[in-house]
Design a binder for these strands. Structure first.
Lengths: 149, 149
DNA sequence: GTGGCTGCAAAAAATTTGCATCTCC
DNA sequence: GGAGATGCAAATTTTTTGCAGCCAC
């Protein structure tokens, strides 16, 4: 059975001699428990009882991004969203509905084998990661569009 | 021979009864002439002699994004970048070098045929567009890394 | 001629920073 | 005990907005 992801992240930080403070643990927990990527404001709002400052949320999220623990995503809203990165969550992509804004994950489908290697051969560019997001209309919204003229 | 892209965008706006003012034309021209996506600040700085306000640059860029003329991109910097979208520029993706920040275009390589259709079948999600960006180290930077220990 | 833009200035929103205090190791 | 984090408040940066005057159509 897989070890708890929060513990993994905490060990990752401990190994690098970062202190495991309450605000940091909470930010990690909130991001881990969320099924969709969260904005800074959303993380801050979910802190509730733990009275951490928004400056600490920013500092924690920036730190985790620099360390590669978090990936920052842009879904064409007026904010950034964050989620745990590849080592701490299964590799996946997103479907973003242009109508309702809902975000779904796609785990099954990724770039075909050799795709990045072909690019390296042509450009000499050594690819380490990619971001792939799909925009469209989700099933629910397209059904509504058909019934509501 | 293909008609000038700036003219195409201008006609697109005219058809929708938007006025073709000097600031709008300039923003379109600057974005069209750039080989890489630009930030709002960069567009503003390139205006130089034409003394347009940065508020107008924001308004123009926001308008063009809403109309789908521009695509907003996030390369994990602390700003957004913009470039002309699909109908006004050939479909392509980007290689972003993590070391020097350089951005290259990839025109040749895109998602294989049927990729988006497979996702639709599994999720019911009707995909209209996608964003795909690659992060890694460009040829120049990886050569430097080998020689400089 | 006039409605939609622009420039300007001011406001709002988002993010960062300085510093005294606190707390994790 | 001490380095490093936090909270708070202030500063900075980014983006939006109100409004009078201007200009593309």
């Amino acid at each position: 059975m897989q070890r708890d992801v929060c513990t993994q992240v905490e060990e990752f930080l401990r190994e690098r001699h970062y202190k495991l403070t309450v605000p940091r643990r909470e930010v990690i927990r909130i991001l881990h428990e969320s099924h969709t990527p969260l904005s800074v404001q959303e993380v801050y709002q979910q802190l509730q009882d733990i009275k951490a400052d928004i400056a600490s949320v920013y500092r924690t999220i920036n730190l985790l991004c620099e360390l590669g623990v978090l990936t920052r995503l842009d879904f064409q809203e007026k904010l950034y969203r964050y989620e745990l990165s590849d080592p701490f969550t299964p590799h996946h992509h997103h479907l973003i509905c242009k109508k309702c804004g809902n975000i779904e994950n796609v785990f099954e489908q990724c770039l075909p084998a050799g795709f990045e290697e072909k690019i390296r051969q042509r450009s000499g560019f050594a690819i380490e990661s990619h971001i792939l997001e799909f925009y469209g209309v989700c099933e629910t919204c397209s059904e509504q569009a058909t019934s509501d003229p």
